[in-house]
């Protein structure tokens, strides 16, 4: 029998990308700013969400991605912040979130008073960068303790983000890191990316972050 060759030419993550676009449009229409936080474990995602929720109160909702446990969700819940937990354990322990899972979550959440929807993505800079979840702003967080070269190792996370937060600036006096080189390197990977330096510990830079959130929420 003759072998057939069929041209397919279809993006592998086509369906994910389509759901992501739907989410992006839907939440924009609802007047909700949708932010996706990506970082290595321990860079300070949950700490920053805690601070932000203190400031913005009920207008914040958080979707937590975790492979197994619910510790971060409990941390936020104890502060009275609305949280929805997605455990990827049942999906085979995936190290990322997909647009379809967020869509399912959103169908169960009461978003009436929400102005800011945060997703704390799963802690690594590899897998989350591959999957568009439809956020209006992708944020990559890098703590000053992580060194000057991470953006070269994980370029996709930096290419696909609009904002880079350099966290834990209170630690700078104890480290040899060259902050200027770190920022220059980030711009080499993505010249368009905005950078905010902050510390949730001593509070420096947080006002720029709050301003960024307010400015980008155009309602």
């Amino acid at each position: 029998m003759e072998t057939k060759k069929i041209k397919v030419m279809q993006k592998i993550l086509d369906i994910n990308d389509r759901i992501a676009s739907e989410l992006r449009n839907y939440l924009e229409k609802q007047g909700i700013l949708y932010l996706n936080m990506m970082s290595s474990p321990g860079s300070g995602k949950t700490s920053l969400i805690e601070k932000t929720a203190n400031k913005f109160k009920d207008s914040i909702f958080v979707i937590e991605g975790d492979i197994q446990n619910t510790l971060d969700a409990e941390r936020l819940n104890n502060l009275g912040i609305g949280v929805y937990q997605i455990n990827t354990g049942p999906f085979g322990g995936d190290c990322h979130l997909e647009a379809g899972w967020i869509k399912t979550a959103i169908e169960e959440i009461d978003l009436a008073s929400v102005k800011y929807l945060f997703v704390e993505n799963i802690g690594n800079l590899v897998c989350p960068a591959e999957f568009d979840i439809g956020a209006h702003i992708n944020i990559v967080i890098l703590s000053v303790a992580e060194g000057e070269d991470k953006q070269f190792k994980y370029p996709l996370a930096f290419r696909n983000s609009q904002l880079c937060i350099i966290s834990k600036t209170d630690l700078l006096p104890y480290l040899d890191i060259d902050l200027k080189m770190m920022k220059d390197n980030i711009k080499k990977v993505n010249s368009q990316i905005e950078i905010i330096e902050l510390s949730t510990k001593n509070g420096e830079g947080l006002s720029y972050w709050y301003e960024y959130l307010t400015q980008n929420n155009n309602c």
């Binding site: 029998m1 072998t3 069929i6 397919v8 030419m9 279809q10 592998i12 993550l13």
Partner: peptide, 12 residues
């Protein structure tokens, strides 16, 4: 360098 797609399928 950032593409990711299915180009083709062969069989009978």
């Amino acid at each position: 360098g950032d593409e990711m797609y299915i180009e083709s399928l062969e069989g009978n």
